[in-house]
Design a protein around this nucleic acid. Sequence first.
DNA 1: TTGGGCCTGTCTTTTACGTCA
DNA 2: ATTGACGTAAAAGACAGGCCC
Length: 367
Amino acid sequence: MELCLSLGDVQAPAEPFGLVSSSSSEKPRDDRVIMAASKTAGFCMSLSIGPSCDSSTSTSPREADQQLDTNDHQNDDDRSRFSAACGSKSDVPVQLDLLPHTPVAPRSSSHGFPWPTPSDQNGGGGGGGGSSENVNRVEEVAAVSSSPTNSGASSFQMDIGLYSSNYRGSGGKRSHSPEAEGDEGERQSNSRASDEDDINGINTRKKLRLSKEQSAFLEESFKEHHTLNPKQKLALAKQLNLRPRQVEVWFQNRRARTKLKQTEVDCEFLKRCCETLTEENRRLHKELQELRALKTHHHSNPFYMQSPATTLTMCPSCERIATTNTTSTTTTTNNNKTTTKAQAEADGFPRFYPFCQPQSHHSSAAS
DNA sequence: TTGGGCCTGTCTTTTACGTCA
DNA sequence: ATTGACGTAAAAGACAGGCCC
């Protein structure tokens, strides 16, 4: 008896598990995995790996990131709101309300980026300085820092507050990069607490923590571009009152963590695939046992009418079961193609399994 | 060959959260 | 029930080294 188990995808013969990128906006975003187990087809699976952070995929990085962001920031009201706003309409430009309690005012860019975006070409301008939103930002910052000297003229200049000017790891193992050294002056000017923290000659300055607004702004920038050219980097740094190096590092970390997140998602997905396949394998084995029992029953039945010779065969390669007799061939699987014995033998199969696709033995993705 | 950008791995700090007295 | 100390995990900022163009 030969057993034939088919695990594959009739729709995606080129790859195992049929990994295809989702390009249709009509597809639910959460349906990264679309599996269909068909009894007649054995086990047909159409899997849709969603956009990855890899820019080589057909899906835009923005889409990928939005997808990730729905997982990344479930507890972040602002970002969750953004995800919800653009969830199924990725084509629609979305204006993020970064400040939940303040209305979004027009900025130099539709996203407030320091560099021009296509939507900016028709006007706007002004670099964001003095907009009501920025005034609100400043007011908010002022409220926190209790600094009456802040004014709306400071545009998007963030009051960074605490700063780690000598981040060095343990025991001074780390050293500044040349750029970081060169930015020392700027850093000092950015650091509100730099002077007071250097009291007594002890560097007790805390590590920088980007403000919510800065993070949100960087996130928005990241949605637009996963990488920055030097011009964009400088503009962003200036607008956020950060060092270019900080912006650069932030983007590096963001890319790395996005990739990590994507890897975790893919890993989880493959794990589910494995479980599904295991379950299907179990089911098929059970089915096989039933067929064996049926065959035994027929042979031991004295009233069993001799019908045309029926045999159960299972392909040793794909373990698919088929019943054959002298006049016809049936199979438990649904194959559209017919394969002749001669053809199969010509393809190099040692034996002829009429229900098997020759290419299935050479391509794991084929049925 | 050199330089810049990016990736990867790692370290450290900060923050959030749970536990316990 | 409340509160403060403490431990821990996760997130985030930063850097070094290596690779690639």
